[in-house]
Design a protein around this nucleic acid. Structure first.
Lengths: 248, 248
DNA sequence: TTAACGGATGAATCTTGGC
DNA sequence: GGCCAAGATTCATCCGTTA
């Protein structure tokens, strides 16, 4: 059964994204902003399913994170799975809702297929320049991640303001609670395509950086997380936001 | 018949890219850097095939450019056509050669499929932040273009130096000779993945910005252009480079 | 208060050796 | 021979601490 936590503008669900999404009513969501597992990197099944302390990490790296569940798919399965949850998101959203999904360069084409297959109209790419990146001798370093931007039908723009197509934000790794944590200021910037008070859905909550950005900017947040460990971390983090400043 | 111009490190061919490439011998090229027609931007066939004064332009923008030939394909045909010329490039390149192809966000997934279908190993995306872009009220502006980076087999790196994954260069519209002209300093930066003296192939020369970057950085340049008008412009531009400073 | 220094880090990739 | 696990490698940037 799904565990639910609700407090003010925050509603959290612990369970598999597809299962939780299927149980929610249509039209209850104004926007989607999420960072799914990339299932990227690793040529072999063993590498993809490796210990989270090893995968995506340098040898000798010390700081541990809880395991990222569900990050073990090959690209074909990953694309089909994305189509499934993106279809559910489409059903839950009202017309005109924006969708923003993080991806790395390797999965970008598959994700663009998946979201269009789920009914979304692809509108563009937002670039996140990370400023730091792993050095790659003799070639270009993977220094950017990407946010695919789409809408359910004609985009219902919150204002006439023009938003930039790229953002440069530092990720403070000392404060990062999740291996794939994103900077809260970046997420706050992205929320500019939603109206104040909008209900934002995040099927892959992780450590709830999106939730913190929603609280900080006056949006309602619906977060779903499979891992009980990260669910607990997120619940504490969002429950404590009224008491003091949070972390990313 | 194909017209040929040759002068020092520069060799230019006037004709259809596929036809010219097919007549060249295998293994004569060290790297590919090119900016093909995107066949993007128009929602309808009529818009895609319309006068270039409308396409890619803000309303009211007056400066005329010669017609960009061959920019009239739907996405399926475009992807097939890309696979063809990318396969020819693959044949002409020696093992370890890098490939860099410009694209906009809309064609990025199709281009990644095409280059992998042609045998290239996709290595990543380099982001070009244009710093300016068409304002898009209420949404993110398309401020970046992308360079897909690939290699023929194992990449033969010219050095151990780590290159950045994104570049920010302003395009000087007044000096631009082609509607889709790219900043020469950006092209010079990209040439850092080739060795000095390398032979660089550019099947879609346009106004030869890549050619100018090659001359400036001591690379040999092979350029192909379908349009007689742009071929003439490029020939003059490159022939004049020894006399004085060029333009982009 | 400001400036400089040192250490840690990164949604990786490649080579090598073992089974 | 094929597949897989482990280790080495790389440096711009940022943060915390010291001067």
């Amino acid at each position: 059964m799904v565990e639910i936590f609700s407090s003010g503008p925050v509603a959290l669900y612990q369970g598999d994204a597809l299962a939780v999404l299927a149980g929610l009513p249509a039209g209850c969501v104004d926007a989607v902003l999420t960072d799914p597992p990339y299932s990227s990197g690793g040529l072999t099944l063993g590498e993809r399913q490796g210990e989270p302390a090893q995968k995506y990490r340098s040898t000798g790296y010390k700081r541990p994170f809880p395991a990222m569940l569900g990050d073990v798919k090959d690209q074909h399965s990953w694309a089909r799975w994305c189509t499934f949850w993106l279809s559910e998101c489409w059903r839950l959203c009202r017309d005109g809702a924006p969708l923003m999904v993080f991806t790395d360069w390797r999965q970008l084409p598959a994700l663009s297929d998946a979201l269009q297959g789920a009914g979304w109209i692809w509108r563009g790419i937002v670039v996140w320049g990370k400023r730091v990146g792993r050095p790659m001798p003799g070639r270009f370093r993977p220094q950017c991640e990407y946010i695919l931007f789409a809408s359910k039908g004609r985009l219902d723009a919150p204002s006439q303001a023009c938003l930039p197509g790229m953002y440069s934000h530092v990720l403070n790794h000392a404060r990062k609670l999740h291996l794939a944590g994103k900077p809260v200021p970046l997420l706050e910037d992205l929320l500019a395509v939603t109206k104040p008070g909008a209900t934002v859905l995040d099927p892959f909550m992780g450590a709830a950086s999106v939730g913190e950005a929603c609280v900080a900017t006056g949006r309602s947040y619906m977060g779903i997380e499979l891992s009980p460990e990260y669910y607990a971390i997120s619940r504490e983090r969002l429950a404590g936001l009224t008491a003091g400043p949070g972390e990313d």
